[in-house]
Design a protein around this nucleic acid. Structure first.
Lengths: 216, 216
DNA sequence: TAGATTGTTAATCGATTAACAATC
DNA sequence: TAGATTGTTAATCGATTAACAATC
């Protein structure tokens, strides 16, 4: 198993770029083109591919169809992934409607909240009371979740998820959550990211500094 | 200038943790406590602080008030930061309502969209037609923006922003955008993040593999 | 063939961690 | 004082990049 998050995230970006190239009618791609498309070096592309034994033809580049098929397999896209959302506030409801997930074969199957006025079990994508989450996870064998609940309850929600069998989550709560080593958790922290941008904007536009900051 | 994005993002996380500790009545904190609060090593905390000349007392730890004041200064929080949002779809409108930003002294001052039905120039936070964005940026001297427009127009929108004087952006479009070196851009790519979680969930629960993946 | 591109190894780079002297 | 914690240096670790042999 490749244990390098940044590399995996790049695979996902290659996939996106390849899909676009294919839709433009391309059949073949060179490490150069792909590097350009996602903003890395050609060495990086070839290294990443080599790690996953994605091979091309010397001189002939890589077959886009072939790469896409293999990337989908690596990223677990052979079957549609069922994901639930805990918390149906601003973020949770935006994510439910977000088109980007279904495009990638990710299927949001339900959301959960405490607020009675938000609950709609008959909707196309149902919103249930949070008390029903545990049973739902067990019944539907949910492995992946999105945490978009208020900070105060985030730890408690992830604990429940873990008990019920969830193996990984995308967490929008700004708190650091305590989870077992084998639980996968990825933090998306919008304030922190935006504060980072603001810091570099100020720092780069301050005449004292003249270095260049990395985008990543 | 410290040119290490991950370090800056940690400063923002320290700040969050310190605010919480202060609200619980604490006055002092040790590198140990902070490390624990955000999930890093005590060495990391002391190293980060040393880089920014945030000093404590040997034996006595760090003063929370003092740290918070200095962190706010470093992160440019002495004045409220004005930010605009391009694109008032699912993501854009969720971000407008998002409480996390104002908590951190980030002020969303306007949003822009092409869809006439979304435009409301008299709202508390106004939504204008995208054609008015450039003039608004110039007039209000906006330095930081959030890009939440459809993929197809993301490059064009960031070009306009740059022309008008924006210096950095948080980009929710999954495309790699071409920007000048001195423009700060941070990518938040929800599909990519979620795909990463799914990959590790599958990989870790596949009997062939028994290594542990890093959360970050 | 000659030229171009892959695949892989070795070198580089930078960030994290460990260790420990200084010191409160 | 003795013990604990900071602040910093050096060691380690891991990821990225450069270089180049293999080869289509």
């Amino acid at each position: 198993m490749v244990n390098n998050k940044k590399c995996i995230l790049r695979l996902s970006r290659y996939k996106k770029a390849l899909t676009r190239l294919r839709s433009l009618g391309f059949k073949k791609v060179f490490s150069d083109n792909l590097a350009d498309a996602i903003g890395v070096t050609p060495s990086q592309v070839r290294k990443d591919f080599s790690v996953f034994e994605l091979s091309g033809n010397k001189k002939g580049g890589y077959s886009i169809d072939d790469l896409l098929e293999k990337l989908n397999r690596i990223l677990g896209k052979e079957e549609v992934e069922k994901v639930i959302i805990a918390g149906y506030g601003n973020i949770g409801s935006a994510l439910m409607k977000y088109k980007g997930f279904e495009k990638e074969g990710i299927n949001i199957v339900a959301a959960f909240d405490t607020d009675q006025s938000k609950i709609s079990p008959k909707a196309q994508i149902p919103v249930f009371h949070i008390d029903e989450m545990k049973a739902f996870i067990i019944k539907e064998k949910i492995k992946t979740a999105i945490i978009a609940v208020p900070d105060m309850v985030a730890q408690q929600i992830v604990d429940t998820m873990i008990e019920a069998g969830v193996k990984g989550a995308l967490n929008f709560s700004p708190l650091f959550l305590r989870v077992p080593d084998e639980f996968v958790i990825s933090y998306v922290n919008l304030e922190v990211e935006l504060e980072g941008v603001i810091y570099f904007v100020n720092a780069l536009n301050n005449p004292k500094n003249n270095e260049i900051a990395d985008a990543d």
